[in-house]
Design a protein around this nucleic acid. Structure first.
Lengths: 203, 203
DNA sequence: AATCAATGTAGACAGCGACTACATTGATCG
DNA sequence: CGATCAATGTAGTCGCTGTCTACATTGATT
């Protein structure tokens, strides 16, 4: 469908094209500067066409965030599956996978973190968010049964475990932040090691 | 000046009134719904009056964030000064103070986390941000000298230490259920204890 | 008392969100 | 096969917003 972008009266896959272009605009000019009419111009469709897929800007942002959570969950699960069955090693990989996904998809990540989203109360987004959090929570619980802060309340341990990759991704994706660090992979690995230590286990 | 809001041709302190009202609007209707003209209506001034203080919406958001970082630094330093001189205990208190400030000032906190801010490249905001981060970094360094992950790179340890309150505040301000949690103080204390443990030291 | 910089007002214009009525098309089904 | 129809795109409109300009008011300075 990617080469049917220009030809016919109908676009082919305008919805996805809008989501993709929106990510580019957010990256370069920010969420505030994102406009439905601007996207329509960029994709050479009429100014009303985007409304067939997103009734308003809030709808568009919600959809980007929903897609973002979906991608983020896939990325973290994929990272876990790459490292075997040890719950500790898996949770560590998920944390690293989180940060790497955020750094590789800053526009989507920033949109998922947009504070307005909770006001829109989208059922779709809520479901994607909860699915992701549940995935993390199960992984945290699995390590706790193996002795990861076994005395701690799971709720607290879970909050702690998610906060590190999330907070770090926030800081690292900000342009002037610590993003210019030389060895990103090492920094992320060292960081997550402080939350879910595995080096003694894998050595 | 707070009672000169209505009378004269000149407002008295329109700038601060705009900042205060903006925080209310952000809280109730979100950053996207915030408009300069809307603020002007709320404060019964002409639609162009806000431009004398904030040339555009980006300027306003930047100012809110700058004020936010300033308040956040005061809050964390104040929390540290309340607990004495032990660097561990101080850093722990700063972490808790961070989260509590964020939960008590969700509009300002969310604005400081707005991903667009880094694109605006405000020197004023950058200075406030750096001042805050330096404060934290010094506190982290002080604990490292006393054995807090002394083998770790300070950059990594600092990222870890900031990420927890930042990420937790992000999560807790969205999930409105936990923000008003009865045992909020305990949750925050337990959380920060996982980053900067002090209970063995103070018992 | 005159002056002036700061601050507020009024008007104008283009761009945007959001709605409506209308047009085109590919898929479905008799 | 050809008619039908839901999905999707177009064109027009309206009120609101950002942003600029010219003008008005006022408190402070001298």
């Amino acid at each position: 469908m990617s080469d049917a972008d220009q030809r016919s009266y109908h676009h082919g896959d305008l919805r996805q094209a809008l989501l993709d272009r929106a990510a580019e605009v957010i990256q370069s000019r920010g969420i505030e500067a994102l406009t439905l009419r601007g996207l329509a111009r960029d994709l050479k469709v009429s100014h009303g066409a985007p409304n067939r897929h997103f009734s308003c800007k809030a709808d568009l942002l919600t959809a980007i965030a929903t897609e973002g959570y979906s991608q983020l969950m896939r990325a973290t699960l994929s990272a876990a599956n790459d490292v075997g069955n040890d719950p500790w090693v898996r949770l560590n990989a998920m944390g690293q996978g989180f940060v790497h996904w955020a750094l590789n998809n800053t526009a989507q990540f920033n949109t998922t973190m947009h504070p307005d989203l909770s006001l829109y109360e989208s059922a779709e987004l809520k479901q994607a968010t909860e699915a992701f959090r549940l995935t993390i929570k199960e992984a945290v619980a699995a390590t706790q049964e193996l002795g990861n802060h076994s005395e701690e309340d799971l709720e607290t341990l879970n909050l702690f475990t998610i906060s590190v990759p999330m907070g770090a991704a926030m800081l690292l994706t900000q342009k002037d932040g610590l993003a210019t660090h030389v060895k990103r992979d090492k920094l992320v690995a060292d960081l997550i090691e402080l939350v879910v230590p595995i080096r003694e286990r894998t050595s």
